[in-house]
């Protein structure tokens, strides 16, 4: 059993506990554990940039999720959906799993990169010429801030829109109270 398989099994255990536990706070903590395991997996997969980003994002996720649940009803919502829907759902997920495993049977085994099997892939040319063409020692930096800079621009735009949307949703009742006050004033 390889290291990645062990890490993935631990992640699966964490995910099952996170979804099935009755306490919301422990569920959030379990999701944090899964995120940190993924950070370790990224380190061993040769992606230190991803590991650092995942650590930061995971800490932020924990803070935001705990903000959503703190001082609120932490008791679980018990009871499941109706039996027929549940059966159909589980059957569909099993079909998804079987088809997915079949598709990934055709993939090259883990450790044989796709770029080794084909000539002139973008990945191999980024590796061979990235440092020379962009001057960045780190090929990931060369990709994000050089070859695919518009990608990074789109990412910033999406995050900006998400934060704007969150702020707009969170400050909505203040305006509504104002309107109610206005209508009360009108009634008087």
């Amino acid at each position: 059993m390889s290291l990645f398989a062990i890490l993935l099994v631990l992640m699966i255990i964490g995910a099952i506990i996170a979804i099935e536990t009755t306490n919301l706070l422990s569920s959030i903590v379990c999701v944090g554990a899964v995120g940190f395991l993924i950070s370790i997996a990224f380190l061993f997969l040769g992606a230190p940039d991803l590991a650092i980003t995942q650590l930061v994002v995971e800490a932020l996720c924990l803070i935001v999720l705990i903000r959503a649940t703190i001082n609120r009803d932490l008791t679980s919502v018990t009871g499941d959906r109706e039996f027929f829907g549940l059966t159909v759902t589980v059957a569909m997920i099993l079909v998804f799993l079987v088809i997915g495993v079949k598709i990934f049977d055709d993939f090259p085994a883990l450790g044989q990169a796709v770029m080794d099997r084909m000539a002139n892939t973008p990945s191999s040319s980024y590796l061979a010429r990235g440092a020379e063409q962009t001057g960045a020692k780190n090929v990931i930096t060369a990709l994000i801030l050089g070859y695919r800079n518009f990608d990074a621009l789109g990412q910033v735009a999406v995050i900006f829109c998400a934060v704007l949307g969150a702020l707009a949703i969170l400050r909505w009742p203040a305006k509504k109270d104002q309107k109610e006050k206005d209508s009360e004033a009108d009634a008087v």
């Binding site: 991803l50 980024y126 994000i144 695919r148």
Partner: peptide
């Protein structure tokens, strides 16, 4: 070296998921 292309795209995906 390992393939840099998925790593760069996953880096973007992680940040977008944070916003979501």
């Amino acid at each position: 070296g390992v393939d840099p292309l998925p790593q760069a795209l996953v880096l973007t995906a992680i940040m977008i998921n944070l916003g979501m």
